[in-house]
Design a protein around this nucleic acid. Structure first.
Lengths: 113, 113
DNA sequence: CGTATAGTTAACCGTGTGCCTAACCAACAG
DNA sequence: CTGTTGGTTAGGCACACGGTTAACTATACG
């Protein structure tokens, strides 16, 4: 995936496709935190962890501000709403199909023991 | 991201982090379809497209069955529910924080013209 | 049979991702 | 000023990802 012009949705889902980053978001959901505080629970090196924070910031899921020598991160919920919107929209389409799939699925099950 | 033991959530989000794959899911939401029919709208080569289908199938978002020489793909909504569940859970945490963030955010805005 | 059609596999290639170590600022603390 | 703390930058490495072309298999058709 070239960095050139990936859609926001692409970037958000990619941002979410990593347990470290999701954990960061999760932790961040209970309030802003500094880099080292965020990095603390993770066994990786600090530069490696910083890359994750960069990814999160580039896809707009978090913002940061540096005061003194401490950089504080906080959430930005807008792009996540986009992701959720897409999912919800898809789910509604899917579930509308579920009844029709039902027969198909049970058919599949029987033919693939 | 090593393939070794990526969590289902990892794989689903990664599966969704590509416009081609999302488009496939979208198209698939209006009913099962064969490989070439799915591949038709996309400008890439068929093997490249097949890789996308493989990704979707490996993360459980779709299933396929081959009858004759035609492989038909169809949706599997379970893993998407997991993704949606995570998002919804996060959003609830986030929005609970939004009021507190509000002050913080407007503060940020003013300090970053 | 022979040939077209639908997928599949194999080999390769450029770029991105995720991690590391080491070196490097910048801001306090004393 | 000196040292420590909190981040950051640089460089490198292994591998996954997304794409290609070419060759191959297997079903359908006539």
């Amino acid at each position: 995936m070239p960095n050139q012009q990936a859609s926001p949705l692409d970037r958000v889902f990619h941002g979410l496709a990593d347990p470290t980053r999701r954990a960061v978001l999760n932790r961040l959901s209970s309030g802003p935190a500094a880099v080292s505080e965020l990095a603390n629970p993770f066994p990786m090196s600090l530069p490696a962890f910083l890359q994750h924070l960069d990814v999160l910031e580039e896809c707009g899921l978090v913002k940061s501000r540096k005061t003194g020598r401490v950089r504080t991160y906080q959430l930005t919920p807008k792009p996540l709403k986009a992701a959720e919107g897409w999912l919800e929209q898809q789910r509604s389409l899917w579930s509308r199909r579920l009844d029709q799939l039902d027969t198909y699925l049970s058919d599949l099950k029987e033919q693939k023991p």
